[in-house]
Design a protein around this nucleic acid. Structure first.
Length: 294
DNA sequence: AAGAACTCCTGTTGGC
DNA sequence: TGCCAACAGGAGTTCT
C-alpha cells in the first residue's frame, strides 16, 4: 500500500500534532500486527515526548525523549488518522453510533497530552510497530539492509549503474527491491519506468555498461524516479483503496497515473498508439506500454 | 547466493 | 443472488 510518497505525506501531516506533544496513554487492542508488538508497548510510551518524526524508506520514526524510537510501518492497509479532541474527526463520522469508536480494524490509539488522539487501523495487519533504542537502529534487522533514499543526492546514475551491473533480474524487480532503493513500491516502479521509456522486463544489468557505468537510459530512470516521487508527494500521495492522509483528506496522484491500473487503455504518451498491458512479475502486477517502453 | 515463489490477513470485485 | 477465484500501495521466509 503506502509507498514512499504516501508515508512522507502521513509524516508531514502527523508531525505538527505529534512533535513536541507526549503520550498520555496508549490503547492497544491486540498483541500483534504483522509481528508481536514489543513488550509493555503502551507502558513504555506513556509519558514520553516526541522530539522528532522522521522517515526512512517506508518507515515512520518517532524519536522519543528517552532515546527510544517508535518505529511504524503501514504495510498494505495501515492508516494513521488524527482525531482532534475539539471538533469531530473527519475519519470517524462513518462509524458514528453502531460501532462507537471501536471500528473492527482499529488496533491502536495513541492519546496525546493535548487531547488529540492518533488512531491506527490496519485491515490486513501487514503493518508493524516496534520500540528500538536510537543507537541500535542502524544495526537493527529492519534497517541494516535498506538501500539508498531515492530522493537523496546519493541516488545518481553512477550509483545505480554500479548496483545494477551484472544483475540478472528484471529492472522492475530491482526497482522495488528495498535493499537497493528504499521506498519505491509497485505503483511508482511502474510509473517511473513509463516515464523513462524503459520496459519493465528489461534485465537490470542492461542499464549499466560492462564496467558498471551509466547509460542514457540509466540517467533517464534516475530522473524519472525522482520526479515521479517528488510530484506524488506534492499531490499528497495516491489514494486507491485504503490510503488517506493523516487528516483524512485523500491524495490525488492517482489521477496522474499513466500506466498503473490502466490495462487495455490507450498509452498516454504523446504520439504513441500503444495499449497498456498488465503482466505479472514475481507475483506483482506490472503495467506498461509495450510500444513505447523498451 | 541470487532470484523467484510462497506466506501472512481481510475485503472487494468480477465472472459464471 | 450466490459462490469462488483473483487481486490489492509490502516484505520476511523458504524454495530452487
Amino acid at each position: 500500500m503506502p509507498e514512499l510518497p504516501e508515508v512522507e505525506t502521513v509524516r508531514l501531516g502527523l508531525a505538527p500534532v505529534l512533535v513536541g506533544n507526549s503520550f498520555a496513554s496508549v490503547e492497544q487492542r491486540r498483541g500483534d500486527l504483522r509481528f508481536p508488538l514489543p513488550k509493555h508497548f503502551a507502558a513504555r510510551l506513556q509519558g514520553r515526548k516526541v522530539d522528532a518524526l522522521d522517515r526512512r524508506a517506508k518507515y515512520l520514526l518517532a524519536r522519543l525523549d528517552d532515546g527510544e524510537v517508535l518505529v511504524m510501518h503501514l504495510g498494505m492497509t495501515g492508516r494513521l488518522s488524527i482525531d482532534h479532541a475539539n471538533g469531530k474527526s473527519l475519519d470517524l463520522g462513518e462509524f458514528a453510533d453502531e460501532q462507537k469508536r471501536t471500528p473492527k480494524h482499529e488496533h491502536i490509539v495513541f492519546h496525546l497530552a493535548d487531547g488529540t488522539a492518533i488512531r491506527y487501523s490496519d485491515t490486513r495487519r501487514f503493518g508493524l510497530m516496534d520500540l528500538i533504542a536510537s543507537e541500535a537502529l542502524p544495526a537493527h534487522a529492519l534497517f541494516k539492509g535498506l538501500g539508498v533514499e531515492p530522493l537523496s543526492a546519493e541516488f545518481t546514475p553512477d550509483w545505480l549503474a554500479a548496483k545494477l551491473k551484472g544483475k540478472a533480474t528484471s529492472i522492475k524487480a530491482a526497482l522495488i527491491d528495498q535493499r537497493l532503493i528504499a521506498g519505491i513500491g509497485n505503483i511508482y516502479a511502474c510509473e517511473a519506468l513509463f516515464r523513462a521509456g524503459i520496459s519493465p522486463i528489461r534485465l537490470a544489468r542492461t542499464l549499466a555498461t560492462k564496467t558498471g557505468k551509466p547509460r542514457k537510459a540509466t540517467e533517464a530512470l534516475v530522473k524519472a524516479v525522482k520526479s515521479v516521487l517528488a510530484e506524488a508527494i506534492k499531490a499528497g500521495g495516491s489514494s486507491l483503496r485504503d490510503y488517506a492522509r493523516a487528516d483524512g483528506r485523500l491524495g490525488s496522484f492517482q489521477h496522474s497515473f499513466k500506466v498503473y491500473g490502466r490495462e487495455g487503455k490507450p498509452c498516454r504518451k504523446k504520439g504513441c498508439r500503444g495499449t497498456v498491458r498488465r503482466i505479472v512479475q514475481s507475483g506483482r502486477s506490472t503495467f506498461y506500454c509495450p510500444s513505447c517502453q523498451r
